[in-house]
Design a protein around this nucleic acid. Structure first.
Lengths: 109, 109
DNA sequence: TATTTGTATATTGTTTTAGTTATATAAAGG
DNA sequence: CCTTTATATAACTAAAACAATATACAAATA
């Protein structure tokens, strides 16, 4: 129907959320990210690829290493979506609350 | 490894995002939600169940209808996560940016 | 009470996702 | 160069997600 929720799909996995949590502490290489996750290196590499495609991380080249960093762009997408929804909620529901309260008060009689 | 990203998984589907968008305009019954989504009613009902389990919508009973509303709780979870990440970013990366800039300046020689 | 309306659940088939092991590749170091 | 280190890709398997159709059920209505 409209745009694809690539960034949300990227978050829809506990391993990837954990990777982001690890990266929240600062830049880390792939192997450093593999260590705490009882999971194979290829599996982690695929997760990192998904996070990168979603704009949630970036990778630079340092010799044979590929240090990963958080990228704020993906985060911004999420925040933008959430604040749109919150605005819509405030506009269309806080008002509705009063309406519904009136209705149910009327129904009690 | 740790907690399950149920709320993000709920957003990781274009139909469900669309449903939330529709609900952003106000309360709607299941059939009203089905209409714009070239998809069967049972499929939409299952999506709604997932959104409800994630705390993103609530449903009330109105005779045989089940009007759905946005629930701000799920939204709050997302906002909380995002702001945690942003704080971590600010704390551990803005500082790191300067460090990396220094390093790459050194490497140029 | 019989029928219709609104919604939910069951069953099933297909597609997608996530994991493993094995292997490729590229840079570093001896 | 040859080997090791760091990471990526390939091939495959298993599990989960999504959709459709058929059906059940409860409330409204005729």
């Amino acid at each position: 129907m409209q745009k694809s929720p690539e960034v949300f799909a990227a978050l829809a996995d506990p391993t990837r959320l954990g990777l982001l949590g690890a990266l929240a502490q600062g830049e880390k290489t792939v192997n450093e990210l593999v260590a705490p996750f009882d999971m194979s290196q290829p599996a982690i590499s695929r997760h990192l690829k998904i996070l990168e495609a979603a704009g949630l991380i970036t990778r630079r080249v340092d010799g044979t290493k590929r240090p990963c960093r958080l990228a704020p762009e993906g985060l911004a997408q999420i925040e933008t979506w959430a604040s749109m929804m919150r605005r819509a909620y405030a506009a269309n529901y806080d008002r509705l609350d009063a309406v519904l309260a009136d209705i149910s008060k009327g129904e009690k009689e």
